[in-house]
Design a protein around this nucleic acid. Sequence first.
DNA 1: CAGAATCCGACAAGATACTG
DNA 2: CAGTATCTTGTCGGATTCTG
Lengths: 112, 112
Amino acid sequence: MKQYHCPVELTLDVVGGRWRVLILAHLKQGPLRYGQLRRLIPDVSEKMLTQRLRELEADGLVLRDATHEPELRTDYRLSPEGETLAPVLQGLYDWGLARAERTGVVVTPPGD
Amino acid sequence: MKQYHCPVELTLDVVGGRWRVLILAHLKQGPLRYGQLRRLIPDVSEKMLTQRLRELEADGLVLRDATHEPELRTDYRLSPEGETLAPVLQGLYDWGLARAERTGVVVTPPGD
DNA sequence: CAGAATCCGACAAGATACTG
DNA sequence: CAGTATCTTGTCGGATTCTG
C-alpha cells in the first residue's frame, strides 16, 4: 500500500516514467498497432513497449484487441478512462512545443 | 545532443522523474523554503530535494534567493518560465484528484 | 507481425553522517 | 536551517535471442 500525499503523485504513478506518457500521447490521436507505435517512438525497445503497454492495460487506460485472422494484428487505443487524460497530454504536448521554440530546440518527427 | 521526436519528450526532460513535478506543483502555490518543501514532500531525501532543485534552477524554472541575515534562510519560487507550466501542473493535479475519487484511493496531506 | 525470456549495465534514489 | 559528501541499493531500460 502506497501513501499519497498529493494528487499529483497519483497521476505520476500512471503517466510517470519515460515511455508511458509518450505512448498515451500517440494513442490519443487514434488507435495504433504495435509496429506503428514502435515507429512513432523509435527509441523504445520492444521489451519496454510491451511492458509499458501491459501496465497501461492493467491500469485501465489502454484497451487492446488482437486478432489472428487473417493474420496476427493488434490494435491499442485509449479506454474511456484513458480519454480523460487527453487534456493533460495536450498540455504536456503544447508546453513542450512552446519550450522548444523558446529554447531553439528542434523536434524531428519520425517521418521516415 | 539529444534527438526529440515528439514535443512531449521535451516536457518530460524538464518535469520527468519522480520529484521534479512534485516540487514544481508545490512551488506553484507560492514561494517555499527548503524545510517547508521537505515537509510537504515527506518521502524525498535531502539529497534528492537539493539535487532536483539545482536542476530546476539550471533549467530556468525555479529561482532561489538565500539570505544569511539575520539567519540562514532560502526561498524557492517559480521563475516566469516556470509559471508557464502552471496549467500543466494544474492538469496533473486535477486528474490525480479525479482518479483518486474514481478508484477510491485516499490522499493524505502531510498535515501531521 | 507481435510478442516472451533472459541477462546485464547505468543511473535514480535511499541511508547515513557531517558542515557553516 | 539549509545544505554537502559518500556509500549502497533498486529500478529502469538496453541488447539479444527465441516463438506462434
